[in-house]
Amino acid sequence: MEKQRGASCWQQYGNILYVDTTRALVATPKAEGLSYAGVPASERIAERDLRNMEKYCTKIVEVGHSMCVAPALIAGIVSRESHAGAVLENGWGDIKNAFGLMQVDKRYHDTVGSWDSKEHLTKGAEIFRGMLEQMQKKFLDWTKEQQLKAAISAYNAGPSKVQHYDGADAGTTQRDYGNDAVARAKFYSRKGY
C-alpha cells in the first residue's frame, strides 16, 4: 500500500513513463565507448550502472516516496551524474565542484551527508523539486510531463537556461541531459525503481 501512495504522490507532477525522449546525442554515448546514440545508448549506459545502482535502491525508493519524486527519475539522474558513484573520487566529481551520487554543485547548494547517503539523495531531490516548481510557474501552459522534462534539464543547467520545450536541453551538458536522463529513468522503472 505504501508504494501506491507514493506513486500517486509523484505522478501528480507528471508520469516519467509518458515523458517523450528522443536521444542521447552522439557525444554522450561516444564518451562511454558506444558507437550508437539515441534511447538504446541511454539504456545501455543505465544497464552498465545497474549493479552499482542496486546498492542504493532502498535509499532511492525511500527518498522518492518521502520527496514525491519518482525513484526511477532519481536513479536516472544518479546514473547520468555519477554512474551510481563509479566515477567519483571520494564522492566528488566535476573538478571537485559537485558532490555525491546526484552531484550537488557546492557553488550553488549546500552539500549534506556523505556522498552516498539518504541525506544527500534527499538534498538532490529537494533541488530537483525546486526546479520543477520553477518550471511549473514558468510554463503554465505546458503539460505536466513537459514541465517534468524541463525540470530535469534545469537540474543540470539551471532554470534560466530552459526557454522553450524543443530546446530545453540546449544549455545542458552535451545538449542531451534531459532526454538522456529520461531514457535512463524509464529503464530503471522497468527494473523496479
Rank of each mutant, 00 (worst) to 15 (best):
A72M: 05
D94W: 11
R48V: 01
A181W: 00
K149M: 04
A46P: 10
W115H: 06
M67C: 14
E47C: 02
G192M: 09
R184S: 02
E145R: 03
D110E: 11
K161I: 00
A150I: 02
F99P: 01
Q103V: 08
L34F: 08
Q174Y: 14
A72Y: 01
I152M: 08
L88A: 03
D105C: 03
R51M: 10
M67E: 15
R80D: 05
T58C: 10
E47R: 11
Y36F: 15
D141Q: 14
Q4W: 03
A157I: 04
V61C: 05
D166K: 09
H164F: 10
I77C: 06
F128E: 12
R51K: 15
G38I: 13
G178F: 04
G113S: 10
D180V: 08
R129K: 15
S153H: 00
E2Q: 09
S35K: 07
K3R: 13
A7E: 06
A181D: 05
L121I: 14
I127W: 09
A183T: 12
N52D: 15
M135N: 08
R48D: 05
A181I: 09
G167R: 01
A185Q: 10
L140R: 15
G178R: 00
E2I: 15
Q163P: 01
P40V: 07
A27H: 04
